[in-house]
Amino acid sequence: METKSSHYFYVLECSDSTYYAGYTNNLEKRVATHNAGKGAKYTRARSPVTCVYYETFETKQEAMRAEYAFKQLQRSEKIQYMRRQSV
Protein backbone atom coordinates (compact mmCIF):
# COMPACT_ATOMS: atom_id res chain seq x y z
CA MET A 1 0.00 0.00 0.00
CA GLU A 2 1.43 3.34 -1.05
CA THR A 3 0.85 6.34 1.16
CA LYS A 4 1.14 9.76 -0.33
CA SER A 5 1.65 12.69 2.01
CA SER A 6 -0.16 15.90 1.27
CA HIS A 7 1.32 19.34 1.49
CA TYR A 8 -0.95 22.31 2.13
CA PHE A 9 -0.79 26.01 1.51
CA TYR A 10 -3.44 27.49 3.80
CA VAL A 11 -4.94 30.85 4.69
CA LEU A 12 -6.32 31.68 8.12
CA GLU A 13 -8.62 34.54 8.94
CA CYS A 14 -7.66 35.95 12.32
CA SER A 15 -10.01 37.47 14.89
CA ASP A 16 -9.02 40.96 13.70
CA SER A 17 -10.02 40.05 10.09
CA THR A 18 -6.41 39.90 8.87
CA TYR A 19 -5.08 36.95 6.91
CA TYR A 20 -2.22 34.63 7.77
CA ALA A 21 -0.81 32.29 5.13
CA GLY A 22 1.29 29.24 5.85
CA TYR A 23 2.45 25.76 4.92
CA THR A 24 1.80 22.45 6.66
CA ASN A 25 1.52 18.73 6.02
CA ASN A 26 -1.29 18.32 8.59
CA LEU A 27 -3.91 21.03 8.19
CA GLU A 28 -6.25 20.15 11.07
CA LYS A 29 -3.39 19.84 13.56
CA ARG A 30 -1.82 23.10 12.38
CA VAL A 31 -5.04 25.11 12.77
CA ALA A 32 -5.51 23.63 16.26
CA THR A 33 -1.92 24.60 17.10
CA HIS A 34 -2.57 28.20 16.02
CA ASN A 35 -5.75 28.32 18.12
CA ALA A 36 -3.91 26.89 21.13
CA GLY A 37 -1.55 29.88 21.02
CA LYS A 38 1.42 27.76 20.00
CA GLY A 39 1.42 28.63 16.29
CA ALA A 40 3.05 31.57 14.63
CA LYS A 41 3.77 34.68 16.66
CA TYR A 42 1.45 36.63 14.34
CA THR A 43 -1.59 34.49 15.17
CA ARG A 44 -1.00 34.26 18.93
CA ALA A 45 -2.39 37.73 19.57
CA ARG A 46 -5.09 37.35 16.91
CA SER A 47 -6.79 34.09 17.82
CA PRO A 48 -9.13 32.43 17.38
CA VAL A 49 -8.33 31.79 13.74
CA THR A 50 -10.42 30.08 11.07
CA CYS A 51 -9.10 28.31 8.00
CA VAL A 52 -10.80 30.08 5.11
CA TYR A 53 -8.82 28.61 2.23
CA TYR A 54 -6.35 25.87 1.38
CA GLU A 55 -4.77 24.14 -1.59
CA THR A 56 -3.23 20.67 -1.67
CA PHE A 57 0.06 19.91 -3.43
CA GLU A 58 2.15 16.81 -4.04
CA THR A 59 5.40 18.42 -2.91
CA LYS A 60 6.43 20.77 -0.14
CA GLN A 61 8.18 23.01 -2.68
CA GLU A 62 4.98 23.55 -4.67
CA ALA A 63 2.99 24.41 -1.53
CA MET A 64 5.65 26.81 -0.29
CA ARG A 65 5.85 28.45 -3.71
CA ALA A 66 2.08 29.05 -3.60
CA GLU A 67 2.39 30.47 -0.07
CA TYR A 68 5.16 32.87 -1.13
CA ALA A 69 3.23 34.05 -4.20
CA PHE A 70 0.10 34.65 -2.09
CA LYS A 71 2.04 36.70 0.44
CA GLN A 72 3.21 39.04 -2.33
CA LEU A 73 -0.39 40.05 -3.13
CA GLN A 74 -2.29 43.03 -1.79
CA ARG A 75 -5.28 42.23 0.45
CA SER A 76 -7.81 42.85 -2.34
CA GLU A 77 -5.82 40.55 -4.65
CA LYS A 78 -5.73 37.86 -1.94
CA ILE A 79 -9.51 37.97 -1.64
CA GLN A 80 -9.91 37.72 -5.42
CA TYR A 81 -7.40 34.84 -5.57
CA MET A 82 -9.32 32.84 -2.96
CA ARG A 83 -12.64 33.50 -4.72
CA ARG A 84 -11.23 32.54 -8.12
CA GLN A 85 -9.68 29.33 -6.88
CA SER A 86 -12.80 28.28 -4.96
CA VAL A 87 -15.07 28.39 -8.01
Score class of each variant (00 low, 15 high):
Y68H: 11
L73Q: 14
S6C: 00
N26E: 08
S47A: 14
A45S: 15
A66W: 02
S17K: 15
L27P: 10
Y10N: 04
K29R: 14
A69T: 07
A32M: 12
N35E: 02
K78Q: 15
T33R: 11
T24D: 09
Y10F: 12
A66S: 12
A63E: 01
A63G: 08
K71C: 11
T33Q: 14
R46T: 05
F57S: 02
V87R: 13
F9D: 00
E77K: 15
D16R: 08
Y20K: 14
E67P: 06
A69I: 07
L12I: 01
S76C: 11
Q80G: 10
R46Y: 08
V52I: 15
L27K: 04
E62R: 10
E67D: 01
F9K: 04
C51P: 01
E58C: 04
S6L: 08
L73W: 09
Y42K: 11
R84A: 10
E28G: 10
T43Y: 10
D16M: 07
R84D: 15
P48R: 06
K41H: 12
S86F: 02
V31M: 05
E62C: 01
T24N: 03
L73I: 01
N26Y: 06
A63W: 01
Y54G: 02
K29F: 00
S6I: 00
Y81D: 05
E28R: 11
A45V: 09
Y42R: 11
A32W: 10
T3D: 09
V11G: 01
A63N: 01
D16P: 11
R30K: 10
A21Q: 03
L73G: 05
E28K: 12
A63H: 01
K4G: 00
T3K: 14
M64C: 06
Q85A: 13
V11Y: 02
Y81E: 03
L12K: 04
N26W: 00
M82F: 03
G22W: 08
Y20T: 06
E55D: 11
K4D: 02
T33K: 11
Y81Q: 08
A66K: 12
Y20F: 14
K29D: 00
V87N: 14
Y23M: 01
Y42V: 08
R75V: 11
T33P: 03
S15F: 12
A36P: 09
R44E: 15
D16S: 05
M1D: 10
H34T: 03
Q72H: 11
S86C: 03
M64H: 00
L12M: 04
M1W: 12
R46Q: 08
Y54W: 13
E13A: 11
Q72R: 15
A69W: 03
R83Q: 12
Q74F: 15
Y8A: 04
K41M: 10
T33D: 13
I79H: 01
M82Y: 05
T33Y: 06
K41G: 04
V11D: 05
G37I: 12
A45R: 09
Y20A: 04
R84K: 13
P48S: 06
T33L: 14
I79K: 10
T33F: 05
F57L: 00
A32N: 14
Y54I: 04
T43M: 06
Q80K: 13
L27H: 07
Y19L: 15
Y23T: 02
N26I: 00
R30A: 05
K60V: 03
Q85W: 00
S15R: 14
Y8M: 07
R75T: 08
A21N: 07
R46W: 05
L27Q: 06
G39K: 08
Y8R: 07
R44Y: 05
E2T: 13
Y19T: 03
V31D: 00
